[in-house]
């Protein structure tokens, strides 16, 4: 039965109406009208719906909304502010360095998978600011891209890592 729930998304407490077993993805897209997390498989296989839950990349298509109560959800839209908080910057940049690096590398094709790519890469760089090529590949392996953008995404993550080192 649909009822009111409070969840914390991009640093704001939001009241939503949903049955507690509703996957978080549908709440984010339909109730909160966020465009970052998006349906890809609904099976936890592709990474299209990824968000950060307390800083950990999580598949929102297989996570019931009730499971994130009392936790902090960050979507693609909230990544610049999340990054600013981590780096203790006074002001959030317009884009997370990973996003900027993807533009610089012109890495995008259809771009549908980039929500997951960006969320995962941001998580990776927050834990490991200077990952090796192999570490990037391993971390990103659960994120599929049907258009085949992996080589440029790899370069963009390396570039973002350098950009972040410059900021620190």
């Amino acid at each position: 039965m649909a009822g009111e729930l409070k969840i914390r998304v991009n640093d704001q407490v939001r009241t939503v109406t949903a049955a507690p077993d509703t996957p978080l993805l549908y709440v984010l897209s339909n109730e909160l009208e966020l465009q970052g997390p998006r349906f890809g498989c609904g099976l936890g296989q592709c990474g299209s719906c990824s968000v950060l839950v307390n800083g950990v990349e999580t598949r929102s298509c297989v996570t019931p909304v009730s499971a994130v109560q009392g936790k902090s959800v960050t979507t693609l839209e909230g990544l610049p502010a999340w990054y600013a908080a981590q780096k203790k910057l006074h002001q959030a940049p317009a884009l997370h360095p990973v996003q900027q690096a993807l533009i610089d590398e012109q890495a995008v094709q259809c771009g549908y998978c980039f929500n997951g790519m960006i969320v995962k890469a941001s998580e990776l760089l927050s834990k490991n600011p200077q990952p090796t090529d192999a570490q990037i590949r391993t971390a990103m392996n659960g994120h599929l891209c049907r258009c085949g953008t992996y080589p440029r995404v790899l370069k963009a993550i390396q570039r973002a890592s350098r950009m972040m080192a410059g900021v620190a």
């Binding site: 339909n30 465009q35 979507t75 317009a94 993807l102 012109q106 995008v108 549908y112 960006i118």
Partner: peptide
């Protein structure tokens, strides 16, 4: 010339409206 693609900034920021976003 390799003019940068005009759809990319919105695609990485999450502002791009895909069919799947239309309501």
């Amino acid at each position: 010339t390799a003019a940068p693609r005009n759809d990319i900034p919105d695609k990485v920021s999450g502002k791009y409206v895909y069919m799947q976003h239309v309501r």
